[in-house]
């Protein structure tokens, strides 16, 4: 796919009522050299003008019924699905991840909803939980979002959710995801050690899953917030620094992937 006359990758940050991370998500796209617009859920805009889409975090439709499910049924999601089926990038962050799981686009191995982001299991609190955690890039260049990460690179990010536990009723699904290299990021300790216990796994997610891509690698659902950890001053341990932090590479990877393949 090649979009002519476009020098910079162009991203639509999709806004649904109740989202609250659209501005900083747009900022991160611009900071890495992409163009980005905030596009409202009821917009009639032609989405084919964009190279990729990000559904940001927040509480779309107040998490009514289940986090992400109402937005997943919105008409505009049909257009976004069509674009993603044509290879365009689609990233869901936190609430956006919940939307993508509820559409069935993640993990996207069949035409049905194969997973859920269930309420956290956490020995400290019931419901919403907010903390700094670490995730690890499991592979390099297996999808559009880990292009610039090294294998086993540890990344600090915050989580902020009540329903972030990846689960499935399909006992064979985790094996398929591993085989397909769809599990992009996993929760880990400071030194990259992966243990299925709190606080390393902050929500009880199966296999410590923090992010899953589709098989093709152009769609990803991630529960932690890379847009809130892209600069050193945003990270408590590094707050004296002014440089970029490693979470920005999620957005840089998108740019890199689009430039390599689409422009």
């Amino acid at each position: 796919m090649r979009l002519n006359n476009m020098k910079k990758p162009k991203i639509a940050v999709m806004y649904f009522p109740g989202n609250n991370c659209e501005e900083e998500t747009r900022e991160r796209c611009i900071e890495v050299g992409m163009e980005a617009d905030i596009v409202r859920w009821n917009s009639k805009e032609d989405l084919s003008n964009y190279h990729g889409f990000i559904i940001p975090g927040g509480f779309s439709y107040e998490d009514r019924i289940r986090a992400g499910v109402i937005a997943a049924k919105e008409k505009i999601m049909e257009s976004i699905r069509k674009e993603a089926n044509n290879g365009k990038l689609l990233l869901g962050i936190c609430n956006g991840a919940q939307v993508l799981v509820e559409t069935g686009m993640i993990p996207g191995l069949s035409n049905k909803v194969e997973m859920a982001l269930a309420p956290n299991t956490n020995p400290l609190v019931t419901g919403y939980y907010c903390a700094w955690i670490n995730i690890k890039s499991i592979y390099k260049k297996t999808c559009a979002y880990n292009h610039l990460y090294d294998e086993n690179e540890v990344i600090a990010m915050p989580i902020a959710h009540g329903e972030g536990r990846f689960v499935t009723k399909d006992k064979e699904l985790a094996g398929k995801l591993i085989k397909n290299k769809q599990i992009v990021f996993r929760y880990c300790g400071n030194n990259g050690n992966i243990k299925d216990e709190f606080p390393i796994n902050p929500n009880g997610s199966i296999y410590n899953i923090a992010a899953i891509s589709n098989k093709e690698g152009n769609v990803m659902a991630i529960m932690p917030h890379p847009e809130r950890a892209s600069w050193q001053w945003q990270i408590p341990e590094l707050k004296k620094g002014n440089g970029m932090a490693s979470a920005i590479k999620v957005f840089e990877s998108m740019k890199n992937y689009i430039e390599e393949r689409m422009i």
């Binding site: 019924i65 049924k73 269930a118 689960v167 009723k169």
Partner: peptide, 9 residues
Amino acid sequence: NLLMNENFQ
């Protein structure tokens, strides 16, 4: 189709 997700409900 809407009111529950059979993966945890």
